[in-house]
Amino acid sequence: MQPIITIKGINKTYTSGFQALKDIDLEIRRGEIFALLGPNGAGKTTLISLICGIVTPSSGTVHVAGHDIVSDYRAARSTIGLVPQEVATAAFETVAATMQFSRGLFGKPRNPAYIETVLRELSLWDKRHAKIVTLSGGMKRRLMIAKALSHEPQILFLDEPTAGVDVELRRDMWAMVRRLRDSGVTIILTTHYIEEAEEMADRIGVINQGRIIVIEDKAVLMNKLGKKQLALTLQNPLERLPEELAGHRLELSADGNEIVYTFDSQAEHTGIPELLRQLGKHGIDFKDLHSSQSSLEEIFVNLVRPRP
């Protein structure tokens, strides 16, 4: 299937000389939730702003729904809804008026029924006559999303949508994003909360210092880069591991009560049966065991950690 966004060789150097984006190539698939992860200042917002027309690229091309974002900006931008990181609203306008403004800006005639659907979906319908300044922080954030959806976009950019949002609202937003995806909207989100990407994304891109270092299906990424561990709680503490077991990737805890075995989850043979046999041979009994997989957070930290 034709990707909905195609980014080729994008570079962005600000007038200060700072290069925010370096040779970005990226394709976003229609209908997916794509999470862009990266530390502060990695270039996430610059990349989003560039696709949306707020930042001008220094070189390279971006096509959105088949339209070049520079030469055919009207068609390209019409398909995009943007929710920026900062909550910025016309404080003294009413919710209904600002929705109408947003829809008009994107060249769409009035459609009160659609606006009502969006506002209801985001629990803002009761507030439609309220001035924005009177809304709570969470409501303002939802309003930002409502505005971005006001012109029925095919693509929704969410730049740190849940930064500073309480747990309940975050869960609500996730549910809403899933419903949107189910209705056919492609979603690109940046986030600091890795659990958010882990929970939501179909694919993950990691950006660091202006470069995309990984683009992968979430499941593959977690499998490929994640490691699994098996922890065994021993019946009797050990002083040291038997020499024959040293070849295995084993670690004995300081108190001698636990053995941790690290293995490659992708390998055909995990080596667990062999390990258990060896332990039995040496008369090492265990009373409990559990296995764990590294989280996306650990994978992420490993990826962006400066290498020595």
């Binding site: 707020i54 931008r77 920026p84 900062e86 060249g107």
Partner: peptide, 11 residues
Amino acid sequence: TGTIYEVLSAP
């Protein structure tokens, strides 16, 4: 106020 983003990103 920052609301200019909407005008700049509009067609």
